[in-house]
């Protein structure tokens, strides 16, 4: 049996009086793509931000590679983050830098690569893998929404993470570009054997990329299984996602 790379148990998070997460539990195995679905504002993004320590949970346990995130030292957290890639909803490209500088940023600051030739090669390889090699000198403001997502993905992939967290990778894109991004996510998983958590509302994306799915409603997990299993669930709320 494959080992769990992420283990979340009884995750609870409040923002002021608002109880966002009541008790979220699921795990992700090595090489697995886990889809997280739920209505907007149900705390899906909060859950993945707890995994990388951007938000701290009030209660519950989040383990990455078997280690409790909340108990990690500053250096351990930093080291863990180098192995976990995060694709933000709007790609979060550094808008004062070119595409090449965006991609070089984690190489020079995180992996501490100083060799200019190596940096250049890796940038070209990664851009090639997302099909955007000709954008190397462009500014993020010159790119379309789909291109920005791909460059965001390239920046995430360039450090070769073992886990990738996708926050709504296809939101705001047309169906064709969404399908392309979904295929790309799947190809990355197969090529790098990376584990992923993909937050999405896009059923097409979930069907293409997901090995397993978890549904969150009112701060709790209400269903877990494969796409087909959940599609045939008798639960009306779960059914409503597949209509």
């Amino acid at each position: 049996m494959e080992e769990n790379v992420i283990d979340i148990k009884g995750l609870k998070k409040n923002f002021g009086d608002k109880e966002v997460l009541k008790s979220v539990s699921f795990s992700v195995k090595k090489g697995e793509n886990m889809i997280v679905m739920g209505r907007s504002g149900e705390g899906k993004s909060v859950t993945i931000k707890c995994i990388v320590g951007l938000i701290w949970q009030d209660e519950g346990s989040v383990k990455v590679f078997g280690k409790e995130v909340k108990e990690m030292t500053e250096n351990e957290l930093k080291e863990m983050r180098t192995k976990v890639g995060f694709l933000f909803q709007n790609a979060a490209l550094y808008d004062s830098m070119t595409v090449a500088e965006n991609l070089a940023f984690p190489l020079t600051r995180v992996l501490k690569i100083k060799n200019a030739e190596e940096i250049k090669t890796r940038i070209h390889e990664t851009l090639d893998s997302v099909g955007l090699e000709d954008t190397v000198d462009k500014m993020p403001s010159d790119l379309s929404g789909g291109m920005r997502k791909r460059i965001g993905l390239a920046r995430t992939l360039i450090v070769k993470p073992e886990i990738i967290l996708y926050d709504e990778p296809t939101t705001g894109l047309d169906p064709i570009t969404s399908a392309e991004i979904s295929e790309l996510i799947l190809a990355i998983q197969k090529k790098n054997n990376a584990s992923s958590i993909i937050i999405t509302h896009d059923m097409q994306c979930a069907k293409i990329t997901g090995d397993r799915m978890v549904l969150i409603n009112e701060g709790e997990c209400i269903g877990e299984g494969s796409y087909e299993e959940l599609q045939h669930s008798p639960d009306k709320f779960i059914q409503s996602f597949f209509k």
């Binding site: 931000k49 951007l54 983050r81 550094y94 808008d95 004062s96 940023f105 600051r109 995180v110 450090v159």
Partner: peptide
């Protein structure tokens, strides 16, 4: 305004989560 805008567009989170400072 620059850092505020970076904050709104999650660029600072992206920097932090990549392991940069």
């Amino acid at each position: 305004a620059e850092l505020g805008s970076m904050n709104v567009t999650e660029q600072i989170d992206a920097m932090e989560v990549s392991g940069a400072n």
